[in-house]
Design a protein around this nucleic acid. Structure first.
Lengths: 168, 168
DNA sequence: CGCGCATAGGTGACCCATCAACCATCCCGG
DNA sequence: CCGGGATGGTTGATGGGTCACCTATGCGCG
């Protein structure tokens, strides 16, 4: 990461403080991700994506969502959701149902087995999130982190993928 | 994410502030990741992992590392590194060489093409990291984030994967 | 009504990551 | 000098993610 010189386009390398910040972010990102998904898998037989889908489904009273809505709620593309639902269907965690109002549509419904799975998984997962992350922040830090990250997310959203900078 | 009641084991759900913090973290994580890797791919024809490998290789003067060292430097398992090196080898970005000192060993060496690739990619990538993330933090925030994240990483490291909590 | 575009969803190919073996070498003790 | 564990690295199966493309339905407009 620390490259020197190389002028010509004057790349503006990161300052040491920026580097450190960025690397610390990456480190948390990688480790936390790995730990949480391995725990989830080991303790509940669910992958991170499985968990996300089931959480998405349980936030509606009847445990059903249109496929694309569900995809949007966890920020996936429809094709990923379609593939994933197919796999989860085979494992009996969710089911597809036809949609009367819209002939092209499909409902994704959580099955009793799916409900059991997430009800077993959720408390442990929440514990892990606390234990591995939240518990190490003071309330002040938690608050600041929230504000910063919400701001970053907002900026990411009104800066459309292909614009912003650089000709490309 | 907001589940209620469900006593019996008294799961300690997240407080609203904690939920917000956690969700803001996840949002940044997903979006930033997606954006950065798509940019890298589009502008330089490198994936995130490709970039990480090349960066790892260029931090030594002769652009070579033992496979396992390289894996450790980017926090991968050896098998992932082996597979990835195989693919990058086919694309001419790196090469494998036999290791004289240790008969089982293998060197991974960056090729001239690899060097070109990363020298083209790095400035753009750094710009993107700034533009999408660092530029939205004040120096104070940057600093606090660094401290918090370094602390979290440290805790993750001395809390071994299978210990810490919960019977299982 | 019929054209055409937009939208909901599915599919297959390809790449990537993980896991569980596996092989070779090194090194230590006897 | 041999047996065995540790170490360095590879491989193949499998599940997951992305992309490009395809189908079918909905919907507006002339």
């Amino acid at each position: 990461m620390d490259k020197k010189g190389e002028p010509g386009a004057a790349p503006r390398w990161l300052t040491p403080a920026e580097q450190r910040a960025w690397r610390s972010y990456l480190a948390v990102h990688f480790r936390l991700d790995g730990r949480l998904s391995r725990l989830l898998q080991a303790e509940s037989g669910l992958s991170g994506p499985d968990y996300a889908v089931l959480v998405g489904l349980t936030d509606t009273p009847d445990g059903r969502h249109r496929l694309l809505d569900l995809a949007r709620s966890v920020e996936w593309e429809k094709s990923r959701m379609s593939h994933h639902v197919t796999r989860m269907e085979k494992r009996g965690l969710v089911a597809r149902e036809e949609c009367a109002e819209d002939g092209r549509g499909a409902w994704v419904v959580i099955t009793p087995a799916g409900r059991e799975a997430i009800e077993a998984a959720a408390p442990r997962h929440v514990e892990a999130v606390r234990h591995l992350f939240l518990d190490h922040l003071t309330p002040t830090e938690l608050d600041l982190l929230t504000r910063v990250f919400e701001r970053v997310t907002a900026r990411l959203e009104n800066d459309p993928p292909s614009a912003g900078r650089s000709a490309g």
